[in-house]
Amino acid sequence: MANADQVKLLIKSHFNDEQERFYTVALQIAASEARQGHAALANDIMKLIEKGKRERRSNVISFPRDLRALVLTTIPDISYSALVVPQKMRKRISRILHEYRYMDKLKAYGLKHRRKILLIGPPGTGKTMTASILAKELTLPLQTIQVDRLVTKFMGETSAKLRQIFDLIEQECAVYFFDEFDAIGGERSKDNDVGEMRRVLNSFLQFIEQDTSDSLIVAATNNPGLLDQALFRRFDDILYYELPDHSQQKQLISNVLGVFLKKNLNWQIVLAESNGLSHGEIADAVRNAIKEAILAGEKQVDEEKLLIMIEEKKDARKGCSKE
Score class of each variant (00 low, 15 high):
1 M>P: 10
1 M>S: 14
3 N>P: 02
6 Q>G: 01
15 F>D: 11
17 D>A: 15
17 D>G: 09
20 E>G: 10
24 T>F: 04
30 A>C: 11
37 G>H: 07
47 K>N: 15
48 L>A: 13
49 I>N: 00
49 I>H: 03
53 K>Y: 02
54 R>Q: 15
59 N>W: 09
67 L>V: 09
67 L>H: 07
68 R>L: 10
71 V>Y: 06
71 V>S: 05
71 V>F: 07
77 D>N: 12
80 Y>N: 05
80 Y>K: 13
82 A>M: 08
84 V>L: 03
85 V>H: 01
93 I>K: 01
100 Y>H: 15
102 Y>V: 08
109 Y>M: 13
111 L>R: 15
111 L>M: 14
113 H>R: 10
115 R>Y: 05
117 I>Y: 06
125 T>M: 08
126 G>Y: 01
133 I>K: 01
138 L>Q: 00
140 L>W: 05
147 V>W: 10
150 L>C: 03
152 T>I: 10
153 K>F: 09
154 F>N: 07
154 F>E: 11
155 M>H: 13
161 K>V: 04
165 I>V: 11
173 C>R: 13
176 Y>K: 02
177 F>R: 06
180 E>A: 10
182 D>C: 09
188 R>H: 04
188 R>T: 03
195 G>E: 10
198 R>N: 14
198 R>V: 07
198 R>Q: 13
200 V>F: 05
201 L>H: 08
203 S>K: 06
206 Q>I: 00
207 F>Q: 06
209 E>R: 09
210 Q>N: 13
214 D>C: 08
215 S>R: 01
222 N>C: 11
223 N>Q: 13
224 P>S: 12
225 G>Q: 09
230 A>R: 04
230 A>D: 08
235 F>W: 04
235 F>D: 00
245 D>G: 11
246 H>V: 06
252 L>D: 01
259 V>D: 15
269 I>L: 07
269 I>V: 06
270 V>C: 07
271 L>R: 00
272 A>G: 10
273 E>Q: 14
276 G>Q: 04
283 A>D: 08
285 A>R: 05
286 V>M: 04
287 R>A: 04
290 I>E: 01
294 I>H: 03
302 D>E: 14
303 E>I: 03
305 K>Q: 15
310 I>G: 00
312 E>T: 10
317 R>G: 08
318 K>P: 01
321 S>Q: 15
321 S>D: 14
322 K>W: 14
